[in-house]
Amino acid sequence: MAASAHGSVWGPLRLGIPGLCCRRPPLGLYARMRRLPGPEVSGRSVAAASGPGAWGTDHYCLELLRKRDYEGYLCSLLLPAESRSSVFALRAFNVELAQVKDSVSEKTIGLMRMQFWKKTVEDIYCDNPPHQPVAIELWKAVKRHNLTKRWLMKIVDEREKNLDDKAYRNIKELENYAENTQSSLLYLTLEILGIKDLHADHAASHIGKAQGIVTCLRATPYHGSRRKVFLPMDICMLHGVSQEDFLRRNQDKNVRDVIYDIASQAHLHLKHARSFHKTVPVKAFPAFLQTVSLEDFLKKIQRVDFDIFHPSLQQKNTLLPLYLYIQSWRKTY
């Protein structure tokens, strides 16, 4: 089996927390979720979201995140109150960019949308954001926290390059993509939290790379249903696996070995980020709550012996909000 052949990389499970039942964490995340308004986002309300009498641009960002990046939404709820709305805006910006690729039928249209967001970032730093909910909220975040323009532009530029429907040539190319998107998002989150620390940035770099790799793995069944495969070609070739094997949902050992190798790289990034947690300011830990969902996925895929098409991998963990709150309460990542 794939797991038994390579099992030495995987460390002990961390979500089991001995003695936790003896201490009762304060009510927090679930209460916040219940208090949030929840009407559906419609095209009509989106168009009017920044106008008078609408929910408001902040509510639009929150709803977009809740629907399109639920794990990011849950993590954002546990940030300090003064930072929450800015991170909602930042993550909503990322969602807007991420959904361009799947929402257009022609690359030219995707490039036009990316050009809109490039100009939007430029206009935000000229205090002239367009009348668009996410743009307005992002402008507020930039003004409030003096966010670095370079990180925002890196996210747009990398998403634009990724409009080509090509597999990553190697794991390094996937890591570079993750660094310029997910890690950049974390650098900006640290700025919102008021953290300027080399060790925190180092952790953000590795956690962002782990996030990018896990996202690529999780999306494999969806991409396969659209006749697309984006997994690193070098690892596929190493194990003699073709793109057609993934399109046919082949579950042979060599296919699972490909998934094992890729998942192991995410695991190593996560492990390395945690190896120097004592040197990272505690104030930075809330920015890294996504490690909970990353670890949850890596454990699940290990349990199914790296069968990327196993139905259990597509099921939401209903206990994730609780695990996130516990992680926040324990002040760790």
Rank of each mutant, 00 (worst) to 15 (best):
S45T: 14
V46W: 07
V46F: 15
V46R: 12
S50V: 11
P52C: 11
G53R: 14
A54W: 10
A54R: 13
A54N: 14
A54H: 13
W55N: 15
W55F: 15
G56I: 15
G56T: 13
D58P: 11
D58C: 07
Y60V: 10
C61E: 03
C61S: 09
L62N: 07
L62I: 13
E63L: 09
E63M: 08
E63P: 04
L64Y: 15
L65E: 02
L65M: 09
L65S: 09
K67Q: 10
K67Y: 11
K67P: 02
R68N: 10
D69H: 06
Y70R: 11
Y70Q: 08
Y73N: 00
Y73H: 04
Y73V: 02
L74F: 08
S76E: 01
S76F: 04
L77F: 04
L77H: 03
L77Y: 03
L77W: 04
L77I: 08
L78I: 13
L79I: 11
L79T: 15
P80C: 06
A81D: 13
S83Q: 14
S83Y: 10
S83C: 12
R84Q: 09
R84L: 09
S85P: 14
S86K: 02
S86G: 13
V87S: 14
V87Q: 08
F88G: 14
R91N: 09
R91T: 01
A92D: 06
F93H: 01
F93R: 03
V95N: 05
Q99G: 15
Q99T: 12
V100R: 05
V100M: 11
V100W: 06
V104E: 07
E106I: 09
K107P: 13
I109M: 10
L111D: 10
L111E: 12
R113C: 06
R113H: 08
R113D: 05
M114D: 03
M114G: 04
M114P: 03
M114Y: 11
Q115S: 12
W117H: 03
W117M: 05
K118V: 03
K119G: 07
T120F: 09
V121K: 03
E122V: 07
D123S: 12
D123K: 09
D123Y: 05
I124D: 00
Y125W: 08
C126R: 15
D127K: 06
P129S: 05
P129T: 08
P130M: 06
P130E: 04
V134M: 07
V134D: 01
A135Q: 02
A135I: 04
I136L: 15
I136A: 11
E137T: 03
E137R: 04
E137G: 08
E137D: 07
E137M: 06
L138D: 02
K140E: 05
A141G: 04
A141N: 01
V142S: 04
K143I: 07
K143H: 12
H145P: 00
N146F: 07
L147F: 05
L147K: 01
T148E: 07
K149G: 04
K149H: 07
R150Y: 13
L152A: 02
M153H: 12
M153R: 13
K154L: 05
I155R: 01
I155G: 01
V156Y: 04
V156G: 03
D157N: 13
D157S: 13
D157M: 12
E158C: 11
E158K: 04
E158I: 07
R159L: 06
E160M: 08
K161W: 09
N162H: 13
D164P: 15
D164V: 12
K166D: 10
K166G: 14
K166F: 13
K166W: 11
A167V: 13
Y168E: 02
Y168F: 13
R169M: 13
R169P: 14
R169F: 12
K172Q: 11
E173N: 06
E173I: 03
L174N: 00
E175A: 03
E175P: 02
E175Q: 05
N176Y: 14
T181W: 02
T181K: 04
Q182L: 09
S184D: 01
S184T: 09
L185C: 07
L186P: 01
L186I: 13
L188Y: 02
L188C: 10
T189N: 06
T189Y: 10
L190C: 03
L190W: 00
E191M: 04
E191C: 03
E191P: 01
L193T: 03
I195L: 13
I195M: 09
I195V: 15
I195F: 05
I195S: 05
I195P: 02
K196Q: 10
K196L: 08
L198Y: 05
H199D: 06
A200T: 07
D201C: 04
H202R: 04
S205D: 03
S205T: 07
H206Y: 04
I207V: 09
I207S: 02
G208M: 01
K209D: 00
G212E: 04
I213R: 00
V214G: 05
V214P: 03
V214M: 10
T215H: 10
T215D: 08
T215S: 08
T215R: 05
T215G: 13
C216D: 05
C216E: 10
L217V: 08
L217C: 03
L217D: 00
R218I: 04
A219W: 05
T220H: 06
T220N: 03
Y222L: 10
H223R: 03
H223D: 15
G224I: 15
S225R: 10
S225W: 15
S225G: 09
R226I: 13
R226N: 15
R227L: 12
R227S: 08
K228N: 15
K228H: 15
F230V: 15
L231M: 11
L231Q: 00
M233S: 08
M233W: 07
D234F: 00
I235A: 08
I235Q: 06
I235F: 07
C236L: 15
C236V: 11
M237W: 09
M237H: 09
M237I: 09
M237Q: 07
L238G: 11
H239S: 03
H239R: 11
H239G: 02
G240M: 08
G240V: 02
G240L: 04
G240N: 14
G240R: 11
V241G: 02
S242D: 03
Q243F: 04
E244S: 04
E244K: 03
E244N: 12
E244H: 04
D245A: 09
F246L: 12
L247N: 06
R248T: 07
R248P: 03
R248A: 06
R248I: 09
R249D: 08
R249I: 09
R249Q: 15
N250A: 14
Q251P: 12
Q251Y: 13
Q251M: 15
Q251N: 15
D252C: 14
K253A: 13
K253D: 15
K253F: 14
V255Q: 08
V255A: 12
R256S: 07
R256G: 04
V258K: 00
V258Q: 01
I259Q: 01
Y260D: 05
Y260P: 00
D261I: 05
D261F: 05
I262R: 02
A263Y: 04
A263T: 07
S264K: 10
S264D: 06
Q265I: 10
H267N: 07
L268W: 08
H269P: 03
H269Y: 04
K271S: 15
H272L: 14
A273P: 02
S275A: 10
S275C: 09
F276K: 06
F276N: 05
K278F: 08
V280G: 02
K283R: 11
A284P: 00
F285P: 01
F285L: 13
A287W: 00
A287Y: 01
A287I: 05
A287E: 01
L289M: 09
L289V: 08
Q290G: 10
Q290P: 09
T291M: 07
V292Y: 12
V292H: 12
S293Q: 12
L294I: 13
L294Y: 01
E295W: 08
D296G: 06
F297D: 03
F297M: 06
K300V: 06
K300S: 12
I301A: 07
Q302H: 09
Q302A: 09
R303A: 12
D305H: 07
D307E: 06
D307L: 00
I308H: 00
F309W: 12
F309K: 03
S312N: 10
S312W: 11
Q314T: 10
Q315D: 12
K316A: 11
K316F: 09
N317H: 11
T318Q: 11
T318M: 13
T318F: 14
L319V: 12
L319R: 13
L319H: 08
L320Y: 07
P321H: 02
L322G: 04
L322N: 03
Y323C: 12
Y323T: 14
L324F: 10
L324C: 09
L324H: 06
Y325P: 01
I326L: 14
I326T: 13
I326E: 03
Q327T: 10
Q327N: 10
Q327W: 07
K331W: 15
K331G: 10
K331C: 10
Y333N: 00
